[in-house]
Nucleic acid binder design. Structure first.
Lengths: 251, 251
DNA sequence: CGCGGAATTGATGTGCATCAACTCGGGTGG
DNA sequence: CCACCCGAGTTGATGCACATCAATTCCGCG
């Protein structure tokens, strides 16, 4: 969102090492020299800006990307020239794993705000995982986790109403930010209402109305792109419990 | 659906070898001795029957499963005791990859009809992939493919109307059956209307009405669980083109 | 300062869920 | 072998959540 000072190369390096560590290696103990080997294949790219593409649908698959700071959205063309937003990617999160299969990207990735992104050439990563079993296991876990997240999304789109979807979206952001040591209750949305609606399978107007309603109900404070969550437990109730005074789910 | 004769062990072995081959190794050339090593860790299970579980949500993750014959559905609990059907798995398809991350299954897998299933202990598979780079690459591709499929599902649930969803469902089945050398236009549905609706985010009644409509329009013939697709191109138009005389997609 | 896209808010329409009634087929027990 | 039963599927009537249309305001930016 802001950049108080020119970020030194060292800062990037350290931060990037951090993001590599936490995303790829945190849960498994990886020998320090292996971390070093992993670190060596990571390319640091200069800061990217709003609107820049990491890759476009159809591009040959070469690398996966890790968000260091900022945010990225991925989206695929839908029928009739429209697009489906597939995800918003925050610091520490990985982009591009879906391209391994066809060796080509089947979605596009666009930077939402000034962001620092690490690029990891997949061929080299694959060599590395061959010789480091625990890193291989990490890769399997990462891929598997992605499947799990998509499953959550299917559940959201298949079974939840508008209210539940937006509550789930906000809580999801909150938790992911918290994981990175950022405030889980006070943050800025880097994406537009339109993109949120597209992502959640809702119309812009519905998103807008729900923000207003949530605010009126004291669940949150909304000022343009600035969000303050005032009542996380209540939001959790909305998501999990299928909404108190709402229709119950089919089946 | 039927079982003309008791299947001999050899038949199972050969068929299972086939399914392992085609799912895990077909696209990459794998040395014959490596295929042998892979084949050795595959467990053959006796035929399973309608209602049997491969695993339940929460079970410790030990193996992935490959459908040899028959079909399996996977589903996760939704809010309020309901369930979300996550997928139907046909011969040659793999189940359980989503459990690697948490080392526990986060969905259940239930057999829809008498089926033969291969079990592959994941720990042993992982050992194998460490020493066979091309097999490791195959695993990455399989996991990545699964992500791509989930993405398709998100697009379907987020952007398609009832008609498009059912058309996409039928075409999907058709193509997957064809891949296994079965008829792409004449097949039996092993799942109930209820399960189809649940999977597609639709009510049973809507599914039923659409079957009737499609039949009236000459797109297909429906008799109970027996399906004949009479006009694949027309179905494809329904899916891709967002329906000729229908509302256009948002954005 | 003024333009234009983003967001909000209100009014209206509709696709599909829901409710309800009925039919069908398959399995069971007498 | 048939009568019964029960769950699955179909069909029709109604309602509602959310999309769509329309008008206005708001803010960012040149």
């Amino acid at each position: 969102m802001s950049q108080q000072k020119v970020v030194s190369l060292d800062t990037i390096r350290v931060a990037c090492r951090n993001c590599t560590l936490s995303s790829l290696c945190l849960p498994m103990g990886l020998a320090p020299e292996d971390v070093e080997r992993l670190d060596e294949i990571v390319k640091r790219t200069r800061p990217l800006h709003r609107g820049d593409f990491l890759f476009r649908e159809g591009d040959r698959f070469r690398s996966i990307y890790v968000v260091k700071t900022g945010s990225v959205k991925t989206f695929a063309p839908s029928a009739e020239g429209g697009e489906q937003v597939l995800g918003f990617h925050l610091p520490g999160e990985i982009i591009g794993l879906d391209a391994i299969d066809k060796d080509a990207h089947n979605c596009s990735a666009k930077v939402l705000e000034t962001s620092a992104i690490c690029e990891i050439p997949f061929a080299r990563l694959e060599e590395l995982t061959s010789s480091i079993p625990s890193l291989q296991h990490q890769m399997y876990r990462l891929l598997s986790k992605e499947i799990g997240q998509d499953t959550d999304m299917v559940l959201l789109l298949g079974k939840k109403n508008a209210e539940e979807r937006l509550a789930a979206f906000l809580l999801g952001l909150s938790q992911r930010l918290q994981k990175r040591g950022l405030s889980p209750t006070d943050f800025y949305l880097s994406m537009s209402r339109h993109e949120i609606g597209n992502y959640l399978g809702l119309a812009v107007e519905t998103v807008s109305r729900l923000f207003t309603r949530f605010q009126d109900d004291g669940l949150m404070r909304v000022d343009r792109k600035h969000i303050e969550l005032l009542n996380l437990p209540a939001l959790e109730t909305l998501v999990g419990g299928a909404g108190p005074s709402r229709r119950q789910q089919q089946q």
